[in-house]
Computed example of a mutant assay.
Amino acid sequence: MTRAEPAGSGLALAPGSRVGIIAGGGSLPVEVAEGLVRQGHSPFIILAEGEVDREADFAAYEQATLALEDIGFLLPLLKREGISHLVLAGEIKRRPRLAKIRPTLSLLTIIPSVAMALARGDDGLLKVLTRGLERRGITVVGAHEIVPDLAAGEGMLTKAGPKQSDWRDIEAGKVIGELDVGQAAIAVGGRVIALEGIEGTKGLLERTRELRGHGRLAGKTRGVLVKCAKPGQELRADLPSIGPQTVEAAHAAGLAGIAVEAGRSLILEGPATLARANALGLFIVGFPATEPTDGQ
């Protein structure tokens, strides 16, 4: 009924290491910061301007604010603050506008790569950013490496479990893992009825709720939200995640439960998320990863 035991107690940081967190929206950057403090490391917080909705939770930490278009100033900031490791955590709702990016010497060398990455989408940009930083001596790590128990374990995570029809929906929804169109799908009656778009999981669930309300899913009961990483995804950033709000929205959409890719998905605010699912009678299950979990 619970998540699998995490492998280890967190990332083993050498003496003198300093971890920075690029913080976006949601609870993930807060949970990563708290995890670091539990391990005896006080993080340096880089607030993504206009994206953070829990700034008060970072009041106790050293911090700076950086606009997305000022990404070229990130490396000098990291070097100035002595940052050795960097975590990208939280939701970034928009991509930087290339025409408004302020160039620096360090950024000019990768501008062509950034332009191509913006055209490929968010994950392409994350790969360029992480590889560019690592070439310059900054180790980029995933939130799940800092706080291992954020990663979903395999098996039943709640009191309720899937019925046979739900397993058919889960298998149908897992097709999202073979595509490069998003991280979530909703399957009802053994077939996918909606894929995640630019609106994110919240919008996907709202769209499903409206379909039920308009009678487009008349006669079809239950259904499952399935979340998994995209093919070749940069696993150190933007892993699929669920939280208490996801559970509430899935329930409002009339779904029976949520299936997530074990080891490659995050459960935010874990105790609250599982407790809310139990209270509403929804299941949360972790299915085996379709790719090795140690890939970068």
Rank of each mutant, 00 (worst) to 15 (best):
A56P: 08
A99C: 14
G26T: 07
V19K: 11
Q63M: 11
L204P: 02
V226D: 00
L268Y: 01
K79E: 13
L78V: 12
G223D: 03
R95P: 03
V37H: 02
V147W: 06
P162C: 12
G35E: 00
L77A: 13
A275E: 14
L239D: 01
P162Q: 11
A194Q: 15
P76Y: 10
R207W: 05
S84N: 12
V147C: 06
E49G: 10
G232I: 00
W167C: 03
S17Q: 07
A56V: 07
P6L: 13
E69F: 11
R94E: 11
G90Q: 08
A277C: 06
A117R: 11
A67F: 09
R54S: 09
R18I: 03
K220Q: 14
L129G: 03
L11G: 05
R236D: 00
R80P: 04
G257K: 01
R168I: 14
L266F: 01
L108W: 14
I71M: 12
L157S: 14
V52W: 06
E154P: 09
I101A: 12
G124S: 06
T273F: 06
L157T: 04
G197N: 09
R212L: 00
R102S: 15
P244Q: 08
K100I: 11
L204H: 02
A59C: 07
V128M: 01
M116C: 13
L129S: 06
G173V: 02
L282P: 02
S113C: 04
I138V: 05
E199Q: 06
L268K: 03
G182Q: 09
R191V: 05
E291S: 06
G223C: 02
A237M: 04
H251E: 02
V19S: 07
T130R: 15
T201G: 09
A60T: 14
G219A: 08
P240D: 02
V188C: 03
I71L: 10
G132F: 05
V128Y: 04
A115E: 13
S17G: 06
L204I: 03
G286P: 02
G90N: 05
G40Y: 04
E34F: 04
R94S: 08
G177C: 07
G142V: 00
T2H: 15
K220P: 01
A289G: 13
F73G: 15
L150Q: 03
